[in-house]
Design a protein around this nucleic acid. Sequence first.
DNA 1: TAGTTGCTGTGGTCCAACCACATGGCCTAC
DNA 2: GTAGGCCATGTGGTTGGACCACAGCAACTA
Lengths: 231, 231
Amino acid sequence: MRTHQLVLAWIEEQLAAGVLAVGSRLPAERALAEQLAVSRTSVREAIRVLEAMGLVRSGVGSGPEAGTVITSDPAAALGATLRLHVAASQLPVADIVQTRVLLESWAAAHASADAPSLPVAAQLLARMEACTEVDAFLALDARFHVALAEAAGNAVVSAMMGSLRGAIEGYASRLTANLPDWASTAQRLRLEHASILAAVSAGDSTAAAALVTEHIEGFYREAGLRHGGAN
Amino acid sequence: MRTHQLVLAWIEEQLAAGVLAVGSRLPAERALAEQLAVSRTSVREAIRVLEAMGLVRSGVGSGPEAGTVITSDPAAALGATLRLHVAASQLPVADIVQTRVLLESWAAAHASADAPSLPVAAQLLARMEACTEVDAFLALDARFHVALAEAAGNAVVSAMMGSLRGAIEGYASRLTANLPDWASTAQRLRLEHASILAAVSAGDSTAAAALVTEHIEGFYREAGLRHGGAN
DNA sequence: TAGTTGCTGTGGTCCAACCACATGGCCTAC
DNA sequence: GTAGGCCATGTGGTTGGACCACAGCAACTA
């Protein structure tokens, strides 16, 4: 076993045992290196891995932002991993979109009408009304979909949904250049968002799932996703 | 931007441009460091991240196994990430199981009856007939489920399915200690596997999805998954 | 011809040093 | 007594160099 994996195993143990939890601070790199009798280099490699996994956040200086603290952002980490594999032509974008439809339609069907994230989603829709810039619109759109997914109450589905969205975010942004008229497309998306939110709030799970499916597939159909190998 | 992220960005560019592809060799660490005008340490940190993402494999010495080569094993990487977040109590095991049911029942329903991975799945079932040891049985079980998922032809679903299974593999193994009689449970699982495979081969997608759902939920119900916080 | 030996290049590990940064306490000037 | 500036401290970020184990291969030797 390589040295940095020893550090990773130690940290995983501490997490499983509850000694470390979200919000905890890891010992300083130099102290941890001495404690585990390894070099600071190996400790840093382990921390880089944990950072890529979305499990820790490192900051320099002093104060609350400094040091290495346990966080939990699985969506970003999974998204980055997927994005790299897409770049390596190992994961077709079409499969990502299809999986996203699968997860998100399930989430829409299983969302509870009184979930606290639904008002958040509604606020995001209000902000999108006045938003004309493409990338800002897409950023709000991403947050809306994540809020919708959270209403189903499954953290894994939410994280994977967000990661799928993030993995092809740049791709989706470039796709908008294919659209004949962004303003009209945006308006259509706004209406679809409102319909989805209404269906979820009304508890009409069948309609919600169908609307979500059509919403996502419709966008990529209009923007011209090439099936079978696009990246 | 930190130095190792610069290296990551460079490698992602090379991947996206097709200069690097699966099977390619990365330049040697010392050469890459000089080429990008960074230290070898930073190059190594980037490689550790890519390794954790399942994108590269490093080997010492000379020959085909040596050096750092581009691979693609997203399932293992995603699984390790999920496992750590489970250890940090941020992803409930129940949510992982639920997501697995979602993905796998979808895969069973969308599997094509003539997929090349179905004969592989059948072979795995034959080997499980004679397998009595728990961990070996679970290992074959994992491969069977992945083969089944691959029959649906969606690489992302397959990878996520495998990662979900891997993230709680150790957990499932410990759960078997709760079972009153492993031999009878194993026999039941074998019969269910055969039924699932038969339904998929017959193209009966509705039955296949229902059988998969009951198969997975039944196991965790019998083994006693504590809902809401077990890890 | 067959075996051995050493050269070469690879990643793996460690160390020592320096930098940039943010905080907090001390010290000075008013 | 207060306000301002300054430096000591501890953090991660980065670098260069050194050494090791390993696997292949070529040159050399018996």
